[in-house]
């Protein structure tokens, strides 16, 4: 007879909020999720929607661009997003919509899908012994002197992170 450790079973869920985006190919990503029981209660029967965004990590001030969204059939636990542009960064989120406002429940990690083809444009090659390359030289900037006292300046120094002030 088989011992119990040879016929183990997988847990149905882990009671956690989790949403993971994974790279399948340069054009496909896979998303799976789980909502904690308390999160399900908060969802309260709303129609859930998943959305996929393209990020521009080189320009963090730029808003993520909505690529696609899908209303989820009840019981769905994962989703494949196909036919995506390669060599891009993606992130997904899930939520519901009410009166034209989207309430996002949770966001996934972001992933970078690899390029599907060679760069095409030749760039200057770097070699291992020179891999750190040459950085721009040091040119001193000229500066003007504002008229301000030490005390004035020190009083404005609490800009860093706020509240750890023990001297003022």
């Amino acid at each position: 007879m088989l011992s119990s450790i040879d016929r183990m079973e997988l847990p149905r869920w882990y009671d956690e909020n989790k949403m993971v985006l994974m790279v399948v190919t340069p054009h496909t990503v896979f998303l799976y999720w789980e909502l904690a029981f308390s999160q399900w209660k908060a969802v309260a029967g709303h129609q859930l929607i998943v959305r996929l965004f393209a990020l521009a990590p080189e320009q963090p001030t730029e808003q993520p661009r909505l690529v696609t969204s899908a209303a989820l059939p009840v019981g769905t636990e994962n989703w494949y997003f196909n036919d995506l542009p390669a060599d891009s960064q993606y992130q997904a989120d899930m939520g519901w919509e009410q009166d034209g406002v989207f309430y996002s429940l949770l966001k996934s990690n972001s992933v970078r899908v690899p390029p599907a083809e060679p760069l095409g444009v030749a760039r200057e090659a770097q070699w291992q012994s020179m891999k750190l390359g040459h950085l721009p030289g040091n040119i001193a900037a000229t500066t003007s002197k504002p008229d301000i006292t030490v005390n004035e300046i020190l009083n404005q120094m609490s800009f860093y992170m706020g509240i750890h002030n023990t001297t003022s």
Partner: peptide
Amino acid sequence: QVVELPMCSWGAGGYNQFWLNPSTDWIYK
């Protein structure tokens, strides 16, 4: 030559699809 390599594999399709597809995706959670 110093280059950055993309994500890749030698599996069918060249990426992750042989290990991540509708028959196997349930294992990753």
